[in-house]
Simulated assay, not measured.
Amino acid sequence: MADFARDYKDPLDDFEQREVTLLGKTKRVYVAGSGPAVIVMSEMPGISPYVARFARWVRDAGLTVFMPSLFGEDGVLPGNGKAMVTLARTCISKEFKAFASNASSPVTQWLRALAAAAHKECGGEGVGAIGMCFTGNFALSMMLEKSVVAPVLSQPSLPMHNPAGLAIGSDELEKVKARLEEDNLNVLAYRFEGDSFCKSARFSAYRDALGDRFIGKVLPDSSANPNAPLKTPHSVVTLHLIDEAGQPTVQARDEILEFFRTRLISAT
């Protein structure tokens, strides 16, 4: 598939659009597919055509994708100016703690409730979750919901301005660590080697906190799509993915899809 033109708008009309109210807050959620549920959380500045493409890959892997609209304009590739406006608005939102180390964003409570509802609706062994960039760490916090059994952290970029910080409360982190051991679960994570938003110090901090339960994979910068408008290698399964057989980013995508299928679909 060729790269999307800058003026392309994805109508997202192959998704069911739901207005989902949980914990007293309503958000739009795009739903598609069948089988166990996977929560796909978009990177900054929102549900771009690249994020939607990844969601369709999840759908086509035999899973039901739930893609909540958390910020930005859905279906577009905004220019740098609009992206910065979205980032600024999101950073000051009470739902997100963009700069706080050892603190979880309040929006993860809503996302946990979404995971519980999705599991009740779709069944299976549990729910998968992938966060990207600004939402990268959210899949870890979501493990406080018992149904979440397949968390993926793609280029987790919070907290901003603290490369070695973790965007999760210390008490929640301890509960997640205990759950990983008790339920024999793992956390998958991906980043590019030279990513200036998600540096090696962050993966080291996760590894120190979670031990062997954290499976962090680092891709060479040379494997990032050179045609991406963001020149810093960053978005592993979206903007910087090269959709060609044998590419490291495609291999990462396929690993993630297989991780979801293995954890969520019953072998019986």
Rank of each mutant, 00 (worst) to 15 (best):
M1V: 08
D3H: 15
D3A: 11
D3M: 09
D7Y: 14
D10M: 06
D10K: 10
P11S: 08
D13R: 15
D14A: 02
F15A: 02
E16T: 11
R18I: 02
R18V: 06
T21D: 06
T21A: 09
T21V: 05
L23Q: 07
T26I: 04
V29W: 11
V29A: 04
Y30H: 10
Y30C: 00
A32E: 04
G35K: 08
A37Y: 07
V40G: 05
M41K: 10
S42W: 08
S42Q: 15
S42F: 12
E43M: 07
P45W: 02
S48R: 15
A52T: 04
A52P: 05
R53W: 10
A55D: 03
R56G: 00
V58T: 04
R59M: 07
R59V: 11
R59C: 03
D60W: 12
A61C: 05
L63R: 12
M67Q: 11
P68T: 05
P68I: 08
S69F: 08
L70I: 06
L70K: 04
F71G: 04
G72L: 06
E73Y: 13
G75T: 08
G75C: 11
L77T: 09
L77G: 08
P78M: 13
N80M: 12
K82P: 05
T86V: 13
A88I: 01
A88V: 06
R89K: 14
E95V: 03
K97C: 02
S105F: 01
W110R: 09
W110V: 07
A113M: 10
L114F: 05
A115V: 07
A118T: 01
H119M: 08
C122W: 09
G123A: 05
A129T: 05
G131T: 05
M132G: 00
G136W: 04
N137S: 14
F138R: 02
M142E: 00
M143Q: 09
V148D: 07
V149P: 02
V149I: 15
P151I: 10
M160G: 01
H161L: 10
H161D: 02
P163Y: 01
A164T: 00
A164Q: 02
L166N: 00
I168Q: 07
I168W: 07
E172A: 01
E174C: 03
E174S: 11
E174I: 06
K177F: 13
L180F: 14
E182A: 15
L185R: 12
N186T: 13
A189D: 04
Y190W: 12
F197M: 08
S200I: 15
S200V: 10
A201Q: 04
R202E: 01
Y206A: 00
Y206I: 00
R207M: 13
D208I: 14
D208Y: 13
L210S: 04
G211T: 06
R213Q: 15
R213Y: 15
R213F: 14
I215D: 14
P220C: 01
P220K: 09
A224S: 05
A224G: 00
A224V: 09
A224D: 05
N225F: 03
P226H: 06
N227A: 12
A228G: 04
P229N: 14
P229D: 11
P229S: 07
T232Q: 13
V237R: 14
T238I: 04
H240C: 12
L241H: 10
D243E: 15
Q247R: 14
Q247Y: 11
Q247V: 03
P248L: 10
T249H: 12
Q251A: 13
R253F: 05
E255I: 08
L257S: 02
R261W: 13
L264I: 01
L264E: 00
